[in-house]
Nucleic acid binder design. Structure first.
Lengths: 208, 208
DNA sequence: TATTTTTTTGACCAAACGGACAATTATTTA
DNA sequence: TAAATAATTGTCCGTTTGGTCAAAAAAATA
């Protein structure tokens, strides 16, 4: 007799898996892969540990899934930089999008940062694969814009790195940022950051 | 009878403590506080676990000491920005120093980043204390330079954040950086980064 | 409603871990 | 060289952790 394999997810499975993912993101981003425990995740979503292991076969599997779904979202806005728009505007729009992500997706940013920081054991192939493709593509575009004198000459790779680092800094190092600012400036960090970054990149890239 | 307390460190104590610190930095920066184990540290420095606990009373104590000695070093170059030098040159010199630190003190940078990322449990008072003092001091200086039209107007706090994030990116996210560059560019990342950053900050801060 | 399937849980296990300690060895000091 | 002190280690312990499993409860299906 053949064993019947369940193909379609039930309503409960969909709901609980999502619940677990959300809790896991929270716990992993705060404690890292090794610092996070199944008990913490269980507590964060109000389930028991064995119940979580009914939906996922291991802690690593949860981590892998959370990371996977995060990565796609992470790369996406870079793809939106369009050949057809005004070069400087396109770049500034990308900066803004990344900054908004740092504000609204702080946990995702921290999880990604922790993963890379510790050698990207599960992410390396994606970095060298689909991300590299997209980056190379945009580097070409930036070089084209430079050769057409539409933006000032810079190393396109390092330009992209600078956008990533400066925007993600407000998510990843938020504790430091908030520690150093007084109450008034604290409440408008992201507004000030946006002003700063737009001024910054405009001065750096504008062709006169 | 009073117990005799050892005041002066012996030669062996000095040597072994340093040995342990070096190994601990390596292990902590790779795995984080919770991912690092005493066994890993022991293996990394060729001592046994109980032997390590002869010099340090707990894992947390090792971590605290490694972090402590790192923090002082981390803040120092900021203090060197001098009121007397040429403003733009002073800032560019600071950028260069930070970039060199990213190249030569990668483990330290990663350990610091991990600590902040996870809420800076042991560092918060230093951030809000001596670091904030130094930052506030330099912010005043930058504002003075701006009011004297010696550099272009920018938010000084965010200028400092941008220097930190862009330079530390090459240490903390090295895996990503190296994944995205081809072999040729990989071998001169830091040279390219320096060129990029100096151009960048010059364009952004120069007064005409 | 009766039966089957899915979901949940308490109890349990082995491995890994931080740490304790007494006994041994090496080093310093008198 | 002998005594005292410092350094090292093998063995052990309690706790935490990821994960198992059988049994119970709940939900879906017939």
């Amino acid at each position: 007799m053949t064993k019947i394999v369940q193909i379609k997810q039930t309503r409960i499975q969909r709901e609980k898996r999502l619940l677990i993912q959300k809790a896991a993101l929270q716990v992993f981003s705060e404690f890292g892969l090794r610092g996070a425990t199944l008990d913490k995740i269980a507590k964060a979503c109000g389930l028991t540990k064995p119940n979580i292991l009914y939906y996922y076969s291991s802690k690593d599997e949860i981590y892998a899934e959370v990371l996977q779904s995060l990565l796609e979202e992470w790369i996406r806005p870079l793809k939106d930089i369009s050949e057809n728009g005004d070069p400087l505007t396109e770049i500034l729009k990308y900066v803004q999008k990344k900054l908004i992500m740092s504000k609204t997706k702080k946990q995702e940013s921290k999880l990604f940062a922790t993963e890379i920081l510790h050698g990207a054991p599960l992410t390396q192939n994606i970095l060298a694969g689909s991300l590299k493709e997209t980056v190379d593509d945009k580097v070409k575009l930036l070089n084209k814009w430079i050769s057409e004198d539409k933006i000032a000459p810079v190393d396109p790779y390092h330009l992209i790195f600078s956008i990533w680092s400066m925007t993600q800094h407000y998510a990843d190092f938020d504790v430091q940022v908030y520690s150093l600012l007084n109450t008034k400036k604290r409440s408008r960090v992201f507004q000030d950051a946006e002003d700063f970054l737009l001024t910054f990149f405009t001065r750096c890239l504008k062709q006169d």
